[in-house]
């Protein structure tokens, strides 16, 4: 395939993915707004004033970057894992596998679809936050870079989940038992500096902590972790997960008998 046909394949797959989640926007775009509104209302507007400030910001402002990145991560992951597994389940993936489309284009198409949904949800949640508090973005370039890198990582993770899944249960196990605890313990609602030494040290092995802090640095200009370390960790994560996903695809794991 030449560049043009590869681009056509990629765009077809990406547009299909966007069309899929836009067609069911009530299930894909609205729920995160409702959930996050409740967080802002209860933890921000009602409980937040009793907590006071954190890192020099009102508690509700401190929460905003964490809640935005949490929405990006969980929606990106859910989009790719469910879409890819759905295609496997309905055997629609065969339509792709019998074409000359290279595996890396298939991977990029699914990842890009997840990233678009994740970033759309991120923007919607950020706009929702503006109804509750003032937020000004300190470093828009860094904020965007971290948002994109984080969504790419979790799109790849979702892709792997879809690749290995044999049933719809298999694509809910990881988000429920792994992703959600890591996200909630990743410093969205608190600074790790508040934790006792042992819990702070344990928190450092949570990859979400690096993502949340890098994103918070982009939005508010504060972080518990050096931003360079976070960006490096994100880049390494993207490279490793992309290589592993592509290797699995080339082996035919989960898709070819």
């Amino acid at each position: 395939m030449n560049r043009k046909t590869i681009w056509n394949s990629f765009c077809t797959l990406l547009l299909r993915e966007i069309d899929r989640f836009m067609r069911i926007w009530i299930q894909t775009l609205v729920p995160p707004i409702i959930t996050i509104s409740l967080y802002f209302l209860i933890f921000g507007a009602l409980i937040g004033p009793r907590i006071g400030t954190m890192g020099g910001f009102d508690y509700i402002q401190f929460m905003v970057p964490g809640l935005v990145i949490m929405s990006i991560i969980s929606n990106t992951y859910a989009n790719v894992s469910s879409s890819f597994f759905g295609m496997k389940f309905m055997r629609l993936i065969e339509d792709l596998l019998v074409t000359p489309t290279p595996n890396w284009v298939i991977l990029c198409g699914f990842v890009a679809g997840g990233v678009v949904r994740g970033l759309m949800v991120g923007v919607l949640v950020m706009v929702t936050a503006l109804f509750y508090t003032e937020v000004s973005i300190d470093n828009i370039g860094l904020t965007l870079a971290v948002g994109v890198l984080a969504s790419v990582i979790f799109a790849l993770a979702g892709f792997l989940n879809g690749l290995f899944a044999n049933s719809f249960d298999d694509i809910s196990v990881i988000p429920t038992f792994v992703l959600t605890p890591l996200i909630y313990l990743g410093g969205i609602f608190y600074s790790v500096d508040l934790l006792p030494d042992i819990w702070r040290n344990i928190s450092y092995i949570n990859p979400i902590l690096y993502i949340v802090n890098a994103f918070r640095y982009g939005v508010l200009g504060i972080s518990d972790i050096p931003v360079g370390t976070s960006i490096a960790a994100l880049l390494v994560g993207v490279a490793l997960l992309f290589s592993f996903s592509l290797w699995m695809l080339n082996r035919g794991t989960g898709i070819r008998q």
């Binding site: 043009k4 394949s9 797959l13 067609r23 629609l92």
Partner: peptide, 23 residues
Amino acid sequence: NLNMFETAYDVVFRQGGYHGLSR
């Protein structure tokens, strides 16, 4: 192996795209 929620047109049109055909 057809997506039951797509139109007949979209099914065929998208397959052309997967093959790398221009729109």
